[in-house]
């Protein structure tokens, strides 16, 4: 895997290599160039463009329109379906991903807005991740459709609050909705990570 490419916010028209009729499917670009400073960035973008997105430490070329959401790109161009389309308004946490380390709703984020930023999806955490493992031990899932979003939210929450108490967990994780009713075990999973001291 290539080193994650870090950059400051913004993007450049140079990123938007005009589409050459390439397939919509994205390819990982190893060692993609750093995103250039954006003195030209006032340029208007109309229609589909090819850009690079940094997802889970890899650069991916994708073809997007201004209206394309991050969620649509992740799912249909990159095949990363861990983030789920649950609601149009992003109030349910189903599509939670980390953008520059912070949890946001991919359903309400435009993909163009993510160019040059580090995106981490649940797939980027991996099966061995301590939060993923704690969810399994505590059976913090039933149908599982909300679970990846919850895992990412818990990951972000514990990064900020590594010694969270039960009360803080109950107050801090209300952006995710579960219909099957797994909340009790989500609390236990978060606390297992805290007690294990394995978060981070």
């Amino acid at each position: 895997m290539s080193e994650p490419v870090r950059s400051r916010g913004g993007f450049s028209r140079r990123e938007f290599l005009k589409g050459s009729g390439a397939a919509a499917a994205a390819t990982a670009v190893v060692g993609a160039p750093l995103v250039a400073p954006a003195e030209e960035a006032t340029g208007l973008i109309r229609g589909a463009e090819e850009v690079t997105l940094q997802v889970n430490g890899k650069a991916h070329r994708v073809r997007i329109e201004p209206r394309t959401t991050l969620l649509e790109v992740l799912r249909y161009q990159l095949g990363l379906t861990g983030a789920k389309p649950v609601s149009a308004d992003g109030c349910c946490g189903g599509s939670t991903v980390l953008l520059e380390g912070k949890p946001i709703s991919a359903a309400t984020t435009l993909a163009l807005d993510c160019v040059g930023k580090q995106i981490t999806t649940v797939e980027g955490l991996g099966a061995q991740d301590n939060v993923v493992q704690a969810f399994v031990h505590q059976d913090a899932m039933q149908c599982g459709f909300c679970t990846p979003g919850f895992v990412v939210a818990v990951k972000a929450f514990l990064k900020k609050h590594p010694y969270a108490t039960e009360e803080e967990v109950r107050e801090g994780l209300n952006g995710n909705l579960c219909r099957c009713g797994t909340y009790v075990n989500v609390v236990r999973a978060a606390l297992e990570v805290v007690k294990g001291g394995r978060n981070g």
Binding site: T121, V132, F135, V136, D139, M141, G144
Partner: peptide
């Protein structure tokens, strides 16, 4: 017992009908 598909569900690997991607698929 932990559920045997627990990691698949928690790590985003589990594929639901919504997640099935087929070549040349339209929405």
């Amino acid at each position: 017992h932990d559920r045997i598909d627990g990691v698949a569900k928690a790590s985003g690997a589990a594929r639901y009908a919504y997640d099935i991607l087929e070549d040349n698929m339209v929405l």
